[in-house]
Amino acid sequence: MKPAPFHYLAPATVEAAVALLAEHGDEAAVLAGGQSLMPMLALRLTAPAILVDINRIGALERQSIDAAGYSFGALVRHADAWAAVRADDPAHLLARALPHVAHQAIRHRGTICGSLALADPAAELPACAVCLDAEIELAGPAGRRRLTADAFFEGLYTTARRPDELVVGVHVPRLGPDTRFGFDEVARRHGDYAILGLAARALVVDGCIKDCRLVYFGAGARPVVATAAQAALKGAALDDGHAHGRAAAAVMGELAIDPDLRYGATYKRQLATALLKRIIGQWKAPQ
């Protein structure tokens, strides 16, 4: 289980990295944290001719937390992002979600942006990014651009990143003080990829859900926004059981879950409503 041969390049600047990607296109793979890429290389599921290791680009290590929100450069590791977010807001969605990403030794190395760029539909962070209206910043030969997470994730392991572009950072806007977060997932073992998970937030004023966002992972080829369920909850009181029931029914109806080899769509739909119930419970709890 050894990688196929490749050439290894470790540029020192974003510009140099982008130039390499522009030169080699699909022949190149970007190595950031490597916690997903390295197994794929070892199993020879992917065999890039060029490996562009961005870990020498010091500028990508920056993270900032300010009134606008959180910004994580492409080399900010899960463990460091978690520590920073937790210090700022222990109830934040990312503070809740990141401990579910694999195990500590993986989180020491894996990066937030790497998880987004990979776009594994079963992973936590793409769903969180969609839920939080995060923006992914890309650098290419023509300069930089930002895409909303919703626009960034296209399908199974595919994103709007062009082959000559590098994900250089993610920006998570700060949400209002009335925002409540919810996160849960169902996994056979702690740290496993979830069978199904839900990243959520709600704007709660006077015990009433003014607005909410429900994003499932493990449910389809990309993070799945449960828009009908969101609509069912919008305007409802937090303890309005009938609204919860309508939302659960909406989830059952709207989630066209891809059955995987191990867990059928019926089972996953049952999990989807169970998760919704738990999330509403989290919203109710003081945050």
Binding site: L43, R189, H190, G191, D192, L261, R262
Partner: peptide
């Protein structure tokens, strides 16, 4: 609870990694 060498009905092997074949870990 966990362990299963999965094959499909045509005897193709489905568990290519320790992420697929679930061994008991400490937490559970």
């Amino acid at each position: 609870l966990f362990e299963h060498c999965r094959y499909d009905a045509q005897a193709n092997f489905l568990d290519g990694s320790l992420a697929d074949y679930l061994v008991p870990m400490a937490m559970e």
